[in-house]
Design a protein around this nucleic acid. Structure first.
Lengths: 327, 327
DNA sequence: CTGAAAGCGCTTACAG
DNA sequence: CTGAAAGCGCTTACAG
């Protein structure tokens, strides 16, 4: 089947390709007779014309694609939801979101060269070289990043405040000797370290002892080992976990050790995954306002594309504690 | 920064663009002096040349992109892992995987027109119109689908056998009155219905009564309601759940009702998510050989691109039961 | 208000 | 073994 081109539409509607282009792109500043406009639109629809994005990208150096780059760790339900929301919202503005998880061996540069996106949406910190190359190519970068990211074009999800929130909640319930359950997967450390920094900061601010840190595998025995270690010496009475899965492991470890939660040891997670409220005891956790984060990203993408649009205000209120039975 | 083109590389290395193209694409059948080849390669590397994929796609009507289309429900850890594996494996063959979840309002056609992928990898069934349009455009479609999908180019993940496996496991442990816990989200029904069909089939084959079906929200009260209903009349002694999350809800519901698992009621899930082995009691579940499924998809993609490559054999052995404490 | 023409960067017959 | 040239389909000054 030969491809239908703008030349075909032009011939069919008896105008030039220029006019077809003007009509189909609703080019502003150019006045087209309503009759001509209708004729072109009808012909395009009748012939099933779809512009070649390759040609358009070659010509303009831009596409309607938003390249969303994920970190190299498993997405998890939070990022799933974020992408879901962003995809839907940007589709309403004619933009298609394409997600690439950075696990391939391929460099980021090769990828965006290949896709020619109009915006790169980074859900993980970029290497400076990548950021610089994108800047030179004139492709705006919008992204969520760790707190301390020095780039103002980035929506910072303050990981650090997650840790602070956890400690605040535990301290308010009278706990003084705290532990931090870190994930065993080293790929998560960028996020885990920020959250731990928040835990440390808030402990210090409140005059609590330095939190005891251990990596916890998602397995009962490993979690039990960590819990046992925390209970030796001055016993830990509350654990802030990297996320809900790690928290569930701690719960299982405590159970294996015959400890009661929250009486002997309290546990708080992050994410509010479905399994959190179904656990026994139901898990207290930090809920993230994913939709608000997504809205912010969407607005940032649109602002990057259209300078007349306002940059979204910085939202800080994107977390809160969901108190359940485990604390 | 002006873009480095093949013409720049040609000038720099003192050859024509033709030669540059031949060298960089390792064009077979053309003999290039080793010295020339080196000169071109060096110049390209030195200048940081990256071919414009837009131009290449325009010229050849093909890119190095694999467009992976997801269904409109949340991915979940199984699909995350599948995509992860496929992305890594295809990257080794110079292919970049771009994932699009079909949630946008944009039609699939607009999307693949925009991306000009060399293959579309469908992790959800396509509309016949889309399939037909892709066929006409000469873009091969590779995909995983439900059992009954009549298209031979599709890798069928036999959802139905998941349900059968669950019943087999429960029946072997002496259970006769079974229930099926369906997900509340209607978007999952395509999968859930297939699994339920497997449950029904195996019950019938074994002469067990028709399974009692209820949709279970991921909330304790709703699950308790379902469990209560199952225990009225001839009491259900075992529940096959759509997936692990639903199974965890059933576990929580049973707990709320004061029932012992597995003594009063046994529960089996699907997926083996981390929370499954951390639950109390640890959840028996059906494990999917994601990596095998991914390998199959990767081989299918490569075969679609290169007719000399063999089509992968159909694998049926992609599931098995992980027996834990809940059954 | 509309059209003829150039050019984005690549690949590939075709000709030496 | 290598080069000059055409053309993929689009957009956009530029000229009427």
């Amino acid at each position: 089947m030969p491809r239908v081109t703008s030349a075909d539409v032009a011939r069919e509607s008896g105008v030039s390709r220029t006019t077809v282009s003007y009509v189909l792109n609703a080019k502003s500043g150019v006045v087209i007779t309503e009759a001509t406009r209708q004729r072109v639109l009808d012909a395009a629809a009748r012939m099933g014309y779809t512009p070649s994005a390759a040609a358009r990208a070659l010509r303009s150096g831009r596409s309607d694609l938003v390249l969303c780059v994920l970190p190299d760790w498993t997405f998890g339900p939070v990022i799933d939801r974020l992408i879901d929301h962003v995809t839907t919202a940007l589709a309403e503005h004619g933009l298609s979101v394409l997600v690439h998880s950075g696990r391939g061996t391929q460099s980021l540069q090769e990828l965006w060269r290949a896709v020619t996106p109009c915006v790169v949406l980074g859900l993980a910190p970029f290497a400076d070289a990548d950021r610089e190359a994108l800047r030179r190519a004139g492709i705006p970068v919008v992204g969520a990043a760790l707190d301390e990211d020095p780039h103002p074009d980035v929506f910072a999800v303050p990981q650090i405040s997650i840790g602070r929130l956890q400690v605040e909640h535990l301290a308010d319930r009278g706990h003084r000797v705290l532990a931090y359950a870190a994930p065993a997967d080293p790929r998560l450390s960028a996020f885990a370290d920020r959250r731990l920094a928040g835990v440390r900061l808030e402990c210090e601010r409140r005059g609590l002892p330095e939190p005891r840190v251990a990596a916890v595998d998602l397995a009962v025995e490993d979690a039990a080992r960590a819990v046992r270690q925390w209970r030796t010496g001055e016993p830990v009475t509350a654990v802030a976990a990297y996320n809900d899965e790690v928290a569930l492991a701690v719960l299982a470890g405590a159970r294996a050790m015959g400890l009661r939660v929250p009486d002997d040891v309290a546990v708080i997670g992050v994410d509010d995954i479905p399994a959190a409220r179904l656990a026994a005891p139901a898990l207290t956790t930090v809920w993230q306002a994913i939709d608000a984060q997504a809205d912010h990203l969407v607005a940032s993408v649109r602002a990057a594309l259209d300078a007349t649009l306002p940059l979204p205000a910085r939202t800080d209120d994107v977390f809160h504690v969901v108190a359940r039975e485990s604390t």
